[in-house]
């Protein structure tokens, strides 16, 4: 299979040590059921601009900086984010209520638009090319990646910045907590997956990638992506069967299933159904104890996949079932958002 595109550079700010220096063997635990991003010092962003940035913009721009400041010419910026600057959005809303629609300052309003991250990246790199933001809840990153694949099919020599970001704000945590999406009991990485209770832990992060169609010196490739909207478990299973049939060549197999399992007992059956489709040799690993559950967590799994494909090693704490791979050549990511939005991504070793 000719990949959709190759990943040449990747960068991630997450609740773990994913930004330089990278060390994902060491595990940082959630506090109050939240895994907050470990933010770097952002030396590349002028302090005056940094101060005005909300967290989503800050970690998004921070993660993208090593790529946009790099030597590669970037022909477009393609970002996935379900909410963008949620904190600023509700801060502005609270001002409206508290000051009864009085004279308000526009700062939070301007920062609140979800396209703010892609816009800020265009602004600071003076990049006037293609610029877009996909906001399709739990499939924002997958749609951004499909967009990148289509752009690259049309413009074979181009390179794009592809990435995703979402933040925990006190406000969206509250909304999702009221919606029963987070656990009530205090949960750590050791107890997340076997709780048998509803809900997960909250997370946040940003992952950014330089993508193009050049095979030479690539870190990894994205071979195929498929998305599906349904609560029907059988449809999900059938869709995965078709996806593998279409995209695995003769004799190829999935060496690693990177599962988006998040400890929510209501969602577990989907992940188990997909696990049963894997051969015994396939290793199964999980990542939500690293980054928590959030709308663009699959972008973090994509960054982890690149890291694992390059290192040819999976951190012990991620393993659910050890297979018998000779090498890690094919990784399947299956991520499920709230039992309704499903994404399959097939990644390959470059």
């Amino acid at each position: 299979m000719r990949p959709l595109f190759y990943i040449h550079q990747s960068s991630c700010i997450s609740p773990q040590s994913s930004f330089e220096p990278v060390d994902i063997d060491q595990l940082f635990e959630p506090a109050d059921n939240k895994l907050m991003a470990r933010e770097p010092s952002y030396d590349g962003i002028p302090p005056g601009i940094l101060r005005r940035m909300g967290k989503a913009v800050r970690i998004g721009v921070g993660a993208a900086l090593p790529i946009i400041k790099g030597p590669a010419e970037i022909n477009g910026i393609i970002i996935g984010t379900a909410n963008g600057g949620m904190e600023d959005c509700i801060k502005f809303l609270n001002q409206i209520i508290q000051y009864e629609e009085g004279q308000l300052t526009p700062g939070n309003f301007v920062q609140s638009t979800p396209n703010g991250i892609a816009a800020q990246l265009g602004l600071i790199s003076k990049n006037r090319s293609y610029n877009i933001t996909h906001v399709h809840r739990g499939l924002s990153f997958e749609n951004a990646a499909i967009d990148a694949a289509m752009q690259l099919a049309d413009h074979q020599d181009n390179s794009y910045l592809l990435g995703a970001v979402d933040e925990i704000s006190a406000y969206n945590y509250n909304i999702d907590w009221l919606g029963d999406w987070f656990k009530d009991e205090n949960t750590g990485s050791g107890t997340l997956y076997n709780s048998g209770t509803k809900g997960s832990i909250a997370g946040e992060g940003a992952a950014m990638f330089l993508v193009n169609r050049q095979k030479e010196n690539a870190a990894a490739s994205i071979i195929a992506i498929k998305t599906l909207h349904t609560p029907d478990l059988n449809l999900v299973q059938q869709s995965l069967v078709n996806f593998l049939e279409q995209n695995l060549a003769e004799g190829e197999r999935i060496d690693l299933l990177l599962s988006g399992e998040n400890g929510d007992a209501r969602i577990d059956p989907y992940y188990h159904a997909c696990e049963t489709l894997m051969g015994e040799g396939t290793t199964i690993a999980r990542f939500k104890h690293l980054c928590g559950e959030f709308t663009t967590a699959s972008a973090i799994s994509c960054w982890l996949s690149c890291h694992i494909l390059q290192q040819q090693r999976i951190p012990e704490h991620m393993l659910k079932r050890k297979g018998n791979p000779n090498a890690l050549n094919r990784i399947l990511v299956y991520n499920n958002y709230r039992g309704e939005q499903h994404g399959f991504m097939l990644l390959g070793r470059a």
Partner: peptide
């Protein structure tokens, strides 16, 4: 999507 049981590619875009 839900009301019409749509199963193709579904997406939402925000460029203000």
């Amino acid at each position: 999507q839900n009301r019409f049981g749509m199963k193709g590619v579904i997406n939402t875009i925000n460029t203000a």
